[in-house]
Design a protein around this nucleic acid. Structure first.
Length: 111
RNA sequence: UAAGUAAGACAGGUGAUCGCGGCCGCGGGCAAAGCGCCUGCGGGUGAGGAAAGUCCGGGCUUCACAGGGCAGGAUGCCGGAUAACGUCCGGUGGAGGCGACUCCAAGGCCAGUGCAACAGAAAGAUACCGCCGGGAUCUGCGCUCCGCGCAGGUUCCGGUAAGGGUGGAAAGGCAGUGUAAGAGACUACCGUCCGUCCGGCAACGGGCGGAGCCAUGUAAACCCCAUCCGAAGCAAGACCAAAAAGAAAGCGACAGGCUUGCCCGGCCUGCUUUCAGGUAGGUCGCCAGACACGGCUGGCAACAGCCGUGCAAGACAGAUGAUCACUCAACGACAUAACCCGGCUUAUCGUUUUGCUUACAGA
């Protein structure tokens, strides 16, 4: 991804959860926190409650792909964590993309 | 053709546009002693039959270990295969099926201990009903009478285990002889046990002879017997190594503190070097192997030997995705490698191949 890195460490996630703002819809919860950098950092969290390994991987890919294709739409300098909810297990690509943009709008981080 | 049975194979494909992890090649930037880090282009490559459950077995690694025993766990007909196994192959015995074929924790309750509800008369034991014999007594009938005979009832003594009923199980089964009624009391056949001979490496099978058959079930009840098992796991572990705690040496014309009224000297902090240390981080372990396919040889087979050919995931928060089109029965099932193998078990939309069996039809 051109403008973004990924969040990896557990403490980074915790910071976003504690200090960030959150918005949610049927499928996902989005946490946003300004990170003071030039680029965005994105983290995707899919718990075991969502499904088995196959399902979790699939959801992760759909979210990452949606973000990648819509990357230009988002503001810079943000840490974003997207948490999949249980209903995300059966979601398709188009719904994921729509949901992501909708949450972005709620956060008012879209250009 | 239908129904069945056994053993397999596949697990969508093609194209276009974006995108990702290793690897190789050529560049650019940072760093510059070196290792590296970021990035562009090109090439090639990138999950499963179960990758799953983590239920067994082994390799590998570290630790422990003279030898033996106890405890604990696992396995349990016989022979073989194997690195090993609780796996596989071939047999034996038993159960099911017309059959192909399938299934089986299949050692030992005359070492000991425990348990066996309910029902039933009785369950390491019995006589409730019944059957049979005898005595007493009552009633009826027959004979002229004493009395006797016959039939029936009540009761007492004895015999019996055929039949009834209960139960998972009632002391081998079944048929006959026998008897008052019965009973392995006796006989044949089947079963059981013992002996012996023959076949087989063995489990076991077969033949012959003998014993009338003294005695329940349960060991996925404790237990006994035989065999096997040291522990923990790749976050194992090996190496490099910022940092932190530490040791030694040196430095003092220059800093601070303590000792002192002051100086010298000493000590602590300091600085430098070396050593030790091992955190962050990095490298290895980490993918060519008890490997796959084909052929030949040995073996009924599991499998083994030889020859040939082939083999490019190795991430470290973790790569296979998205969109569209065409095709197809298939957008559609189950399900994501994490050190590696051999198995087992469980999940699964479907498609498909071969052998065999039974039934029907045809030649």
């Amino acid at each position: 991804m051109k403008f973004s890195e990924s969040l990896k460490k557990n403490h980074q996630f915790r910071t976003v959860f504690q200090k960030g703002r959150s918005r949610a819809d049927r499928y996902f919860v989005m946490y946003v926190l300004e990170n003071g950098e030039e680029y965005n950092r994105i983290g995707i969290s899919v718990s075991k409650k969502v499904g088995n390994s196959i399902v979790r991987h699939r959801v992760t890919r759909l979210v990452r792909e949606s973000y990648r294709l819509q990357e230009a739409m988002f503001n810079s300098g943000l840490d974003i964590v997207i948490v999949a909810r249980k209903s995300a297990a059966s979601v398709g690509f188009h719904e994921t993309e729509k949901s992501l943009l909708h949450l972005g709008k709620l956060h008012q981080i879209l250009l």
